[in-house]
């Protein structure tokens, strides 16, 4: 594993207005790692992702990306560092076609020859091929999620933050999304996953992070977590 982390979060405190959401969270994300963020609703998982992305910058603490302090820089600067965000509510642009949605995210990646391009996206999501000229608001939920993941990949990211990637999708579509996430993982892109499907997360993740009330209360690999079902029971109620 790469010794210098891509993202290093130190002791961040994030607020929504007066509500104190994250209470001193620290986390490092290394190249190629898959991290699952677990925890009940309202424990700060989404806020943590939004803080990393700069959408909700922390009031205290620091976030370093590639050893640069990026705690208070604008969102686009963080995105340009190779951090992609797939938001909870499927951020497809309803007024653009599938093709336009994907193309507007294209960032030519000079550093990597095997960059993601439209053809590669269509290879992993063949279903989008015949929907290219449909508008974003004419797609099914699963297709919207495919476009959003595809769009994130088109930026050729080093890290993808996926918030509830499979929420509200039919079981077969969910299966497809998980297998795509698995193949993204194999290309060496680091992923941070938030999802309700704990089994799928434990299957994919190298490291599982459990959050409770805005704090990280447990970190461990999937085997350790499976061997200690009482931890899952205590923090997730399963």
């Amino acid at each position: 594993m790469n010794p210098s982390p891509i993202i290093e979060i130190s002791n961040i405190h994030t607020f929504y207005g007066n509500s104190h959401i994250l209470h001193g969270v620290s986390l490092t994300i290394h190249a190629g790692e898959t991290i699952s963020l677990l925890g009940r609703n309202g424990m700060g998982k989404t806020t943590l992702l939004r803080s990393i992305m700069g959408l909700n910058p922390p009031k205290q603490g620091t976030i370093h990306i590639f050893e640069q302090n990026m705690t208070h820089v604008p969102v686009q600067k963080i995105a340009q560092q190779g951090i992609a965000f797939v938001p909870e509510n499927r951020g497809v642009f309803p007024n653009l076609s599938v093709l336009e949605n994907l193309n507007m995210a294209a960032v030519p990646d000079a550093n990597r020859k095997k960059g993601w391009n439209l053809q590669r996206i269509l290879d992993i999501f063949p279903q989008l091929q015949k929907r290219l000229n449909h508008m974003g608001n004419q797609l099914s939920g699963g297709e919207q999620q495919m476009v959003t993941i595809g769009r994130a990949l088109m930026t050729n990211p080093k890290v993808i933050l996926l918030d509830e990637a499979t929420e509200g999708l039919a079981p077969l579509v969910r299966q497809e999304i998980w297998s795509v996430i698995h193949s993204i993982q194999e290309t060496g892109i680091a992923t941070v996953l938030v999802d309700k499907d704990v089994d799928a997360l434990l299957h994919l993740a190298n490291r599982n992070v459990i959050m409770e009330k805005g704090r990280i209360v447990y970190q461990g690999n999937s085997k350790q977590l499976k061997d200690n079902p009482e931890i899952l029971h205590k923090y997730l109620g399963i």
Partner: peptide, 17 residues
Amino acid sequence: QVIQGICVNESRVRALG
């Protein structure tokens, strides 16, 4: 396409860089 994206959701466009 970018400005039409901004019209719908600006922070989403910023998150694309």
